[in-house]
Design a protein around this nucleic acid. Structure first.
Lengths: 411, 411
DNA sequence: CCGGTTTGTTCGAGCTCCGAACTTTATGCT
DNA sequence: AGCATAAAGTTCGGAGCTCGAACAAACCGG
């Protein structure tokens, strides 16, 4: 009982735990090796010995087994000023393929990926309104994709969607923007495709994407992803792992009131963050600024709603009304992000969504709000995600592959 | 690489990790055994075999070593309808003592505890305003306590205080209610007492207390503690472990705006939750309701401030003005708790503080606000903590002992 | 060609859990 | 009293893992 704990320790869950065996040791060290190769490749066995602290002999045995299992490949030999030349090891990207699926209200994007999140195919289809129709069409598309891109093996299908998935049952609990309720997507798609299916909320997927294949992170264990579209959702990674809450519904900060008596939200609450800072909010601000003098609320129906994409285009052209609407949205985006920075103090907060296209305008307003409202603002870097679709798709790959690279949750 | 992951998995931190050895296996299984005994005691080796899934032989060996290390003790023999009678095992509460310290702005409470959070002594002293004076006095009190209560060994000192501790350096970053800034408490107290010192924010301590010795929790892995005094602080346990954020400052939801343009807070923000829902807020509400008609803000100085304890007493006596102030506080307590329920979706949210004395009045208002404002309200039970001081002190014991009972954060 | 140097492999020691066989200690029936 | 049955706890060989030292391989420069 003199183990050196590295960082935070967690209580052993006596409802479901697993004892350790000799195989556990090998398993843990294999994962460490795999991660070291991922991080430092190309890398020699001797380097791995130095990085890991394991004996040279142990490294050789583990590397041998990982090569036999096709996780690693031997590559070129290196050159050194003196001594025997090392044979470099690197990940074998062909080890397994992954099908990534990004479900959005309008369209669903599918991707074929290798282990290194390099997409070898990318296509999209309209998202069917009816869930069962969607399941059938998606399954067909997936099987077609697999046929068109034959690989040694497919590891699974990762699906990101704007809704929440219950942790135990892995059923969709709700997805308001899709109009779907309580629904089992996993079982039928697994049956149709013959592959294991992982489902995850889009914000969680983005958070995982940043954790596993982001550029900002080396030793980042606390990370928040905020997805901004017609709703706002938050994915949290704390202590290096996804926070799902007890039922999988954690992260609905979009439905926290920013203005207690603000506009009524469909969730039942008033002044929800997503009522004030989502794309839909900007659309509303723009419409409201049309002609109606302040105070008037009714007659929404006869106002022409300009899609958010158009507003962004107008902003880029310098349209003052559009800019005003965007500023208003940015202001509330800032107050909400200040809430997350103050409350969660992550190393990084990533904003995902179309709004990042005009981040040069939005970013400073957000930064200002956070600086003014969060006395802990210094700890968190707020960055826009490069491409939202890519972000979610990389997340789906991480969802499927993470079990091979993450530390087993021991005990 | 066919390990069965139990629940959430975490990324391996390549900056600081530790490879597994054979000893790791024994370590993990020892901890599991220790926890099983803690949970089920008194319990026989055969029961432990069934609970853990380990072989009878392995259980015997581990139990033998834990007994040799004085963690466990053999007790009475049981009775069974048939067969050899089992010898029961139980934790040895005398294995190690812990000094728990609860620092509050007015007074500091010290306790001597066994492994089972049973306090064998409890005393308090005024909290010195000057940090270095405080350190000297506290160290003396601790050494006196140890002398007065000799034990086989003391495991360490756990200190809970209303401030934030930086994760790496373990220095106090700030403690506004104490008036202390940037300060190293750990090193001098360790030097004076000769014992390892653990520091933790009071809300985090309460969260740990509930995790390790609470009554509500069996398989609860997501838990939030809200401490309400003159400030409001939040301790979070997600996936069975404390969330400290990147610098240790996570949980400052007390400084999230509930009302964006509300009263100015000393943190620089406006309408902070703790400006609206803390004890100090209730005191302000009470004072403001005295005579001043609505709208008037000035002339605070000549209003007599009634301490929060007196307001609670007035509420218990049915005083309408006090009730109104309390209701107002409760209302905002509810909106803030709704934020936590919506955003974090914990299994349990524990409210700690004097306000729980009148929870029959406050609880329903909070519940109503949460029900109205959080569409995920069903997942979280909101409960008042029994005794605030006890809660924090139990937390300090958990802080010191948890390293022996928690799962080592592997890899 | 040989010493120096680095990489990678081999092999026995020590630790762990597993699993079967065994001992111990109880009950109940004959 | 004697024996079958049953459950608790122990013993001991086997297999898996890492460690650590010794060894083989490969390369450089003098």
């Amino acid at each position: 009982m003199t183990f050196v704990c590295i960082k935070s320790m967690h209580k052993i869950n006596l409802s479901k735990f697993q004892v350790a065996t000799n195989g556990t040791v090998r398993d843990i060290n294999s994962r460490i090796m795999l991660n070291l190769v991922r991080r430092h490749q190309p890398v020699s066995r001797a380097d791995l010995m130095r990085f890991s602290g394991l004996q040279r002999s142990t490294v050789s045995v583990i590397a041998g087994r990982l090569i036999a299992d096709r996780w690693l490949k031997e590559g070129a030999v290196g050159n050194l000023p003196r001594g025997r030349r090392p044979t470099f090891l690197h990940l074998n990207p062909e080890r397994c393929g992954v099908i990534g699926v990004d479900v959005q209200p309008a369209r669903t994007t599918l991707a074929v990926s290798n282990m290194d999140s390099q997409f070898s195919a990318l296509e999209s289809m309209p998202t069917a309104k009816d869930p069962s129709e969607f399941i059938v069409r998606l399954s067909h598309r997936i099987t077609d994709l697999i046929r068109a891109h034959p690989k040694k093996s497919y590891e699974g299908v990762g699906i990101s969607l704007p809704g929440r998935i219950e942790v135990g049952s892995e059923r969709l609990i709700f997805a308001p923007t899709l109009g779907w309720n309580e629904l089992d997507l996993k079982t039928p798609i697994e049956r149709e495709t013959g592959l294991p299916v992982k489902l995850e909320n889009a914000a969680n997927a983005c958070a995982l994407a940043e954790l596993w294949s982001g550029q900002h992170i080396d030793g980042v264990n606390n990370l928040v992803a905020v997805t901004v579209s017609d709703d706002i959702s938050v994915g949290m990674i704390m202590n290096g792992q996804l926070v799902r809450g007890s039922t999988g519904v954690a992260g609905e900060f979009g439905h926290v009131s920013q203005v207690l008596d603000g506009p009524r939200c469909r969730c039942g609450n008033s002044g929800c963050w997503e009522m004030l800072a989502s794309n839909a909010a900007a659309v509303r601000y723009y419409a409201e600024s049309a002609s109606v003098p302040k105070g008037a609320i009714g007659s929404k129906s006869d106002m022409a709603t300009v899609p958010f994409g158009d507003i962004l285009r107008l902003v880029e052209q310098g349209d003052p009304r559009a800019c005003k609407a965007l500023n208003q949205m940015a202001h509330y985006l800032g107050t909400g992000i200040a809430m997350l920075v103050t409350g969660l103090a992550p190393d990084i907060l990533i904003v995902v969504g179309e709004v990042t296209r005009v981040w040069d305008k939005v970013g400073p307003i957000v930064a200002e709000a956070v600086k003014r409202r969060s006395f802990t603002h210094a700890v968190t870097r707020i960055v826009p995600a490069g491409s939202e679709a890519q972000s979610r798709l990389r997340g789906t790959v991480a969802m499927v592959l993470q079990k091979h690279f993450s530390a087993p949750s021991i005990a």
